[in-house]
């Protein structure tokens, strides 16, 4: 399966691994935004997760505990955001930006002295007979456990949002906090839970970069992945399955661009690298113009909620 000198199967397998960090972070942000909160601090939470996950994994020698550490760290930073926006009613856009600034600084501070160390290895676990299926086997079922976990999380998030009462309440809070409040739901508590979940997911996505993708700790290792995750949520029009697609597309374009170069193709690199964003904007326009409001953003996204009673 070669096209233009590129083996499509290995390309697909690579892009699936490459897209795990942005997939995890975007899934978390999707839940946050579904609850009506816009947290622009994804990059900050990811990089804190990357550094803490790395440190914990090296200290314990166990990457699984490392991922847990990354999740806790991401959630801890998200807790600051939750405190600011939900309790102290600060503006979400400004708080999110401050979160990224703080996260980048703190991570580099924590990471001093952790450069140039190899973390414990996470091995690929091919899924038995599934990995022997032609094409699908190597593409989907011959990776490390986090890849499978990220797939499972896509299903889980979809199921919870669509099929459970908790998901219904979460969406209701995001569509109209006043109505949800009137129905007796604890808007603030639900949103805080969503924010913490988003932080944990971003933290794990960050830890995937420092523990598996790269694997090492260096300052600024996430290099903008958090911002891409934000774009993916929009691209996906707040649907978990499309987040998966979006992550593959965004992760895929950067991989494809390098593969094309390695194969000696002449393509204008810059235009390829801006194309996912342009596509996302077009998708947004398409969503908002024609196919009705149901597919669009949560109605109360980014608005501050204060119950007057």
């Amino acid at each position: 399966m070669d096209i233009g000198g590129i083996n499509i199967i290995t390309l697909l397998a690579t892009l699936i691994v490459a897209s795990v960090p942005i997939l995890m972070a975007a899934l978390g942000e999707l839940v946050v935004e579904k609850s009506g909160v816009l947290n622009l601090g994804v990059e900050g939470m990811m990089i804190i997760g990357a550094v803490i996950g790395f440190v914990v994994a090296v200290q314990t020698g166990n990457p699984v505990i490392g991922f847990l550490g990354g999740a806790v760290a991401g959630a801890a930073l998200a807790a600051v955001f939750a405190l600011l926006t939900q309790v102290l009613l600060a503006n979400q856009v400004a708080s999110g930006l401050a979160l990224t600034l703080f996260g980048l600084g703190l991570s580099s501070l924590i990471g001093q002295g952790w450069n140039g160390i190899r973390p414990p290895l996470t091995r690929d676990v091919p899924l038995g007979p599934l990995s022997d299926i032609p094409v699908l086997g190597p593409v989907l079922f011959s990776h490390d456990w986090m890849v499978y976990a990220s797939f499972a999380l896509v299903v889980a998030v979809w199921w919870v949002l669509r099929r459970t009462r908790a998901g219904l309440i979460l969406r209701a809070v995001g569509e109209s906090h006043d109505a949800a409040h009137a129905l007796g739901y604890k808007v603030r508590r639900i949103r805080m839970a969503a924010i913490l979940f988003g932080g944990a997911m971003a933290g794990m996505g960050g830890a995937y970069i420092s523990l598996i993708r790269v694997p090492q700790w260096t300052d600024g290792i996430t290099s903008g992945a958090g911002w891409i995750a934000l774009a993916i949520v929009v691209f996906a029009s707040w649907k978990p399955w499309r987040v998966l697609l979006g992550a593959w597309l965004f992760g895929g374009i950067s991989v494809l661009q390098l593969s094309l170069q390695a194969a000696g193709s002449r393509i204008p690199v810059e235009y390829l690298s801006m194309s996912p964003y342009v596509i996302t904007i077009l998708v947004l326009v398409f969503i908002s113009s024609g196919r009705g409001r149901a597919m669009g953003a949560p109605a109360d996204l980014g608005k501050t909620f204060h119950a007057s009673r």
């Binding site: 600051v80 405190l83 600011l84 102290l88 009613l89 600060a90 503006n91 400004a94 708080s95 930006l97 401050a98 979160l99 600034l101 703080f102 996260g103 980048l104 600084g105 703190l106 991570s107 580099s108 501070l109 001093q112 300052d219």
Partner: peptide, 24 residues
């Protein structure tokens, strides 16, 4: 370290945003 300054600026923003609640 440069990182400490960045974290410091982040803190300044957190506090400014946090205490704003007293105004409104």
């Amino acid at each position: 370290p440069a990182a400490a300054i960045q974290a410091f600026q982040g803190m300044l923003l957190f506090f400014l945003l946090a205490v704003d609640i007293l105004t409104n």
